[in-house]
Amino acid sequence: MNWLQQLPIPVQTIGLLIASNIFMTFAWYGHLKHQTNQAWYVAALVSWGIALFEYLLQVPANRIGHSQFSVAQLKILQEVITLSVFVPFALYYMNEPLKWDYLWAALCMVGAVYFMFRSA
């Protein structure tokens, strides 16, 4: 982890949040593709196992990031990253169709980022 500490704080934070979101997305939605014949509690247990790795990345990301970002800024970063990870997941992994709503949601997020960071 020493090489990670040499990176700028925003890069550390965003990188860890991206990685945690990949785990989160698979924990929340991956069972819809692979465990539809399983009882919901089996999917929940598998999801919790995957989510452990999310938290092992997300908690350090927020601790590192909080030294430079406000809690509100961390939250909006998380939401933008979530959408950025979710859309490719939905399109390529879950084979969902591309919808204009993804673009409109992304534009709303751009506005949210602007307002959250404009006074920084």
Results as ranks from 00 to 15, higher is better:
residue 105 A to P: 01
residue 96 E to V: 08
residue 12 Q to R: 12
residue 119 S to Y: 08
residue 13 T to P: 02
residue 111 G to Q: 10
residue 23 F to C: 05
residue 22 I to Q: 03
residue 8 P to M: 10
residue 13 T to Y: 03
residue 85 V to W: 00
residue 38 Q to R: 13
residue 86 F to H: 06
residue 107 L to G: 05
residue 13 T to A: 10
residue 71 V to N: 10
residue 72 A to K: 05
residue 22 I to C: 05
residue 18 I to C: 13
residue 28 W to V: 12
residue 109 M to V: 04
residue 104 W to M: 11
residue 52 L to D: 06
residue 30 G to Q: 08
residue 10 P to H: 13
residue 100 W to C: 07
residue 104 W to D: 07
residue 45 L to Y: 06
residue 75 K to P: 06
residue 98 L to E: 10
residue 64 I to Y: 00
residue 70 S to Y: 06
residue 36 T to M: 13
residue 84 S to G: 13
residue 38 Q to V: 11
residue 2 N to P: 02
residue 75 K to S: 14
residue 93 Y to P: 00
residue 47 S to R: 01
residue 69 F to A: 00
residue 3 W to K: 11
residue 48 W to L: 14
residue 43 A to Q: 13
residue 33 K to W: 09
residue 83 L to Y: 04
residue 60 P to F: 00
residue 17 L to D: 02
residue 61 A to H: 05
residue 101 D to P: 02
residue 77 L to I: 01
residue 45 L to K: 11
residue 41 Y to Q: 13
residue 22 I to E: 03
residue 34 H to S: 11
residue 38 Q to L: 13
residue 89 F to R: 04
residue 27 A to C: 14
residue 85 V to Y: 04
residue 71 V to P: 01
residue 13 T to V: 07
residue 100 W to V: 10
residue 4 L to A: 09
residue 87 V to K: 02
residue 9 I to V: 12
residue 62 N to C: 06
residue 44 A to E: 08
residue 68 Q to H: 10
residue 20 S to C: 09
residue 81 I to F: 04
residue 29 Y to D: 07
residue 2 N to G: 09
residue 110 V to L: 06
residue 34 H to W: 15
residue 11 V to L: 14
residue 51 A to E: 09
residue 98 L to K: 10
residue 3 W to S: 14
residue 89 F to L: 08
residue 54 E to M: 10
residue 100 W to A: 14
residue 15 G to W: 00
residue 47 S to F: 07
residue 69 F to R: 00
residue 11 V to M: 14
residue 27 A to H: 11
residue 57 L to Y: 01
residue 73 Q to N: 01
residue 86 F to L: 10
residue 73 Q to S: 01
residue 57 L to M: 04
residue 117 F to Q: 06
residue 26 F to I: 05
residue 26 F to W: 11
residue 8 P to N: 09
residue 90 A to E: 15
residue 82 T to A: 04
residue 26 F to H: 03
residue 45 L to A: 14
residue 52 L to Q: 09
residue 82 T to Y: 05
residue 104 W to G: 04
residue 32 L to D: 15
residue 6 Q to I: 03
residue 114 Y to W: 07
residue 98 L to M: 15
residue 49 G to S: 07
residue 1 M to K: 08
residue 66 H to I: 05
residue 119 S to N: 14
residue 51 A to I: 14
residue 111 G to I: 06
residue 36 T to E: 14
residue 40 W to I: 11
residue 34 H to I: 09
residue 20 S to L: 09
residue 11 V to E: 06
residue 107 L to E: 11
residue 4 L to C: 06
residue 57 L to E: 00
residue 59 V to M: 12
residue 115 F to R: 02
residue 53 F to S: 07
residue 72 A to Y: 09
residue 10 P to L: 08
residue 4 L to F: 14
residue 17 L to G: 01
residue 94 M to H: 07
residue 36 T to L: 14
residue 61 A to L: 10
residue 18 I to F: 14
residue 60 P to E: 02
residue 7 L to S: 02
residue 9 I to P: 00
residue 11 V to W: 12
residue 43 A to E: 07
residue 16 L to T: 00
residue 74 L to Y: 02
residue 33 K to L: 15
residue 41 Y to L: 11
residue 20 S to M: 05
residue 45 L to S: 12
residue 23 F to V: 01
residue 54 E to T: 11
residue 7 L to T: 06
residue 79 E to N: 07
residue 15 G to D: 09
residue 86 F to I: 06
residue 56 L to W: 04
residue 11 V to D: 10
residue 79 E to H: 05
residue 22 I to H: 02
residue 101 D to C: 08
